[in-house]
């Protein structure tokens, strides 16, 4: 069960895994996520589904090695199996025709953005994708995006690919040039915070897909709770997508740091072992 059938390196720290999961492949929709566990002592980690193929019974996950558990996952090879895989979880993206949609993704957030771009395109929207990365090597899925998007704008911190600047600059350029009806953003919390601040200024409805700390992923524990519009919400069952203008990103960023010290110890320990 949950065998890895294909693996591709997008960059040094980002891999794409195709995992055998026929039941999830059959039932998932854009925006859904899964919980993955590697090893009997493994942590449960949430990952948004990038793509799926119900005929082949596989789902695609894009993983960035940022800590102990994600590194373990990235180190798996074709033929290895995940210890546990459960999903699809969360609410699916609300895909409908609204007009012009800007889809802004950064880091591994670009992967779960892909099915949203595809869905928005198929629903008859004009779709403009803004991809952001530190440099050219970290820009992922550009070609796949182009097959669904009317336009793809690449932004890099150093200008090594596309335009130099942050994701917000790319979005603002579009807003200044044409009417935007909806913005969808997936990426690091800090990036989504600034996207939300920008689009709020222009009163453009914006949806953010949040990735918080989770344990069970089914609403049981509340580790993923955030504040939206002054009310506590659970990302796993109420989300993962929310009105970005209502999300308290500062609180979310703070809560993401809950285990920073423990994680650092774990990473140092891992590095010691590697060295």
């Amino acid at each position: 069960m949950y065998e890895i059938v294909a693996k591709e390196h997008f960059s040094a720290n980002v891999v794409k895994l195709e995992v055998k999961a026929p039941l999830i492949a059959r039932s998932r929709k854009p925006g859904h996520f899964v919980i993955v566990r590697v090893g009997e002592k493994g942590e449960r980690i949430p990952l948004t589904i990038a793509e799926s193929d119900s005929k082949r019974g596989v789902i695609t996950l894009v993983v960035q090695a940022t800590g102990h558990s994600s590194r373990q996952l990235c180190n798996l090879e074709v033929g290895d199996t995940l210890t546990d895989l459960v999903g699809p979880l969360g609410q699916a993206t609300n895909i409908k025709k609204v007009g012009t949609v800007v889809c802004a993704g950064g880091g591994v957030g670009v992967a779960p953005l892909l099915p949203i771009v595809e869905g928005m395109h198929k629903a008859g929207n004009r779709v403009i994708v803004v991809l952001a990365a530190r440099n050219k090597e970290l820009v992922i899925l550009e070609k796949q995006m182009r097959s669904f998007a009317d336009e793809v704008i690449v932004m890099t911190d150093d200008g090594s690919s596309g335009n130099k600047g942050l994701v917000t600059k790319g979005i603002e350029d579009v807003i200044k040039r044409e009417k935007v009806d909806l913005c969808v953003t997936v990426g690091p919390a800090i990036m989504m915070k600034f996207v939300a601040l920008l689009t709020k200024k222009y009163a453009i409805p914006t949806v953010a897909s949040l990735n918080t700390i989770m344990v069970d992923g089914t609403g049981m524990c509340g580790a993923c709770r955030i504040t939206v519009g002054g009310k506590t919400k659970f990302v796993c069952v109420d989300g993962p997508e929310f009105d970005a203008h209502q999300v308290d990103f500062d609180e979310m960023l703070m809560r993401l740091g809950a285990y920073k010290e423990i994680e650092k110890e774990q990473n140092d320990h891992d590095n010691e072992r590697i060295n």
Binding site: G219, C221, V237, A258
Partner: peptide
């Protein structure tokens, strides 16, 4: 299913669960 919270200030601080 969902755990109840009291909806009081500071309930989402790190260390409250």
């Amino acid at each position: 299913g969902l755990p109840r919270f009291m909806d009081i200030p500071g309930e989402n601080l790190i260390g409250v669960m």
